[in-house]
Design a binder for these strands. Sequence first.
DNA 1: TTTAGCACTCAATCGTTTTGAGTGCTAAAA
DNA 2: TTTTAGCACTCAAAACGATTGAGTGCTAAA
Lengths: 340, 340
Amino acid sequence: MDDRKQLILRAIIREYIGKVEPVSSKNITGRYGLDVSSATVRNEMSCLERMGYIEQPHTSAGRIPSEMGYRYYVDYLMEKYRLAIREKQAIENRLDERVDKLESLLQKAGEILSELTNYPSIVSEPTMTQKRYRHFKLVEINDTMALLVIVLDDSSIKNYQINLVGRLKEEDYKTISNILNDRLAGQDISGINSGMLPDWGYQSLNDKLVMEDILRALANVVDQDNVHNIHISGTLNIFNQPEFKDIEKVRGLLNFFEQQKSLQKLVESGREGISYRIGEEVPLDNLEGLSVITSTYCVNGKPVGTIGVIGPTRMDYSKSSTLLEKISENLGISLIRLMK
Amino acid sequence: MDDRKQLILRAIIREYIGKVEPVSSKNITGRYGLDVSSATVRNEMSCLERMGYIEQPHTSAGRIPSEMGYRYYVDYLMEKYRLAIREKQAIENRLDERVDKLESLLQKAGEILSELTNYPSIVSEPTMTQKRYRHFKLVEINDTMALLVIVLDDSSIKNYQINLVGRLKEEDYKTISNILNDRLAGQDISGINSGMLPDWGYQSLNDKLVMEDILRALANVVDQDNVHNIHISGTLNIFNQPEFKDIEKVRGLLNFFEQQKSLQKLVESGREGISYRIGEEVPLDNLEGLSVITSTYCVNGKPVGTIGVIGPTRMDYSKSSTLLEKISENLGISLIRLMK
DNA sequence: TTTAGCACTCAATCGTTTTGAGTGCTAAAA
DNA sequence: TTTTAGCACTCAAAACGATTGAGTGCTAAA
């Protein structure tokens, strides 16, 4: 692939991304640094087609990039997109606003990403590995109910209602809190899971019942922690994409967006850092003509989650990936602040 | 409007609801108890059209019901739909399953409604009026943070993290809990709202700061309580409706579904009990050809929220309203159980 | 190696014709 | 007075055919 062919391939892709119409030889001559006649371009095009980088919808039409063409573009030809000042500011402002809940932060990140790219976006909840218990406190509420307060080492507080089988005396609350603190403080939360509750040997049946209720609540912490919901925003942006004029295509994609499992698969199969998956490379049968760009976001240098955009194969890879980089970076920063 | 006209109008509507194609005179003769020739039916139809109950898309087409026609049908002609056993069971089973969270329950109600009707559904969160504080407890977490536990008279427990400005001694926690219990237990929660925090006269600046943080948390209880989110499910069902072949229509409706405000308006404007709003009667500009059936659901005989379906004007009013009645009744029952 | 020129292709557009479902009206039958 | 058979009429939708024009591939000269 010589220089001029590269120039032409890039021109075709840029043009097609913008107009979403087959690109003719005449269209790109005199631009994109191509000071040759359309006939010359046609010869090159014919060659590029034989090489598999572009294709022709029908004989008398222009060319459109093939998936292989996009891949080559992303790997070798793509120029860096310069963020507009207002884009940069929008990202920083929006992700800097004080938010109290993790969900809201992820939601916001997804929204701004969708807004700026015009594509639907997905954000996976962060996997915070290695959380430990720091402190326990069982609080009296009334005769039949207590509240278990758990502080984790990232300072987050969780609490669970415990229905009491028998009545507890005031000192019992302290005793139980102490037992929990002695046994579990500093331990990894995955130690207690619903698969197998430990047997600590109890003095009475009542002790056993109460403590097992509590342990079940602790198991809940882990279980809930392992459900990594995936948020999706800007789904209606697909209506802005000319390739989604067909109602069945829209339906298929929107339907896909409602399936947590498929989204999960999509997110989990992405590589660390920025990952481009183009057309067939997207690990989803029954959805064609789509590309996915994902980026992992990091806390303290470690990737903990994924954020990405979904668009037609002819999406604006350059702009999207730059925005994605910036947003995932800022998301990481906000996340650290949120957890402090 | 004589008997035969009613018979014919009902026949046209039933037929149109099923086939979604203009109904011809020949089509309904010999059925629906119409033992007359098509010519006779034609005469009657022509009359019904002059009266405004049906209309003709173009000269050589059959008739379709007008909005006025649907209104007449709903008010006078509609026959009661008999629930299939599997429908009844599906509703009872699904709403009987133990759920712990209010949101999940509403979600479920919406889902089953959408599933059985094939239309999108909306469910508003219940307005629980007149909640009172029952009990307070301020719990020590660490030097910089405390947890405020609030028990309401419906036994629900809420809790808020309080960031401490200064350090508190162990007895302070008890003192503050006591003050709150003395002053507020038994009071209506709307007494403390973010509009105006009470000034209780404090001994020191620190006391003041701590207590005001707490009061702000209490105000939150009310504020959060006043946000009545509206859940929507089964949105993709609109793809099953032949009137939504047009992409722009789909887009408009899906877009509408994302606007909490509009949904709120829709829910709040419904009357108590079952309410049918047909076409123009729906209080939403820029959305045409839609009908909405809503039903209030009750706790202890009092309507506390709304559940409903949204469909094309030619929706199956009979089936939908019967399902809606049944589901809203069961939702009320489950709700009472959930709060106990 | 490049390019002007020309024949060729084919989707898309436009206009015309055909088709058939369904009506309205009329005049005879009930 | 009401019902109905019969027939002319209407019009959207389908089928067909002709036209257009953007864009190509190829060839022969620059």
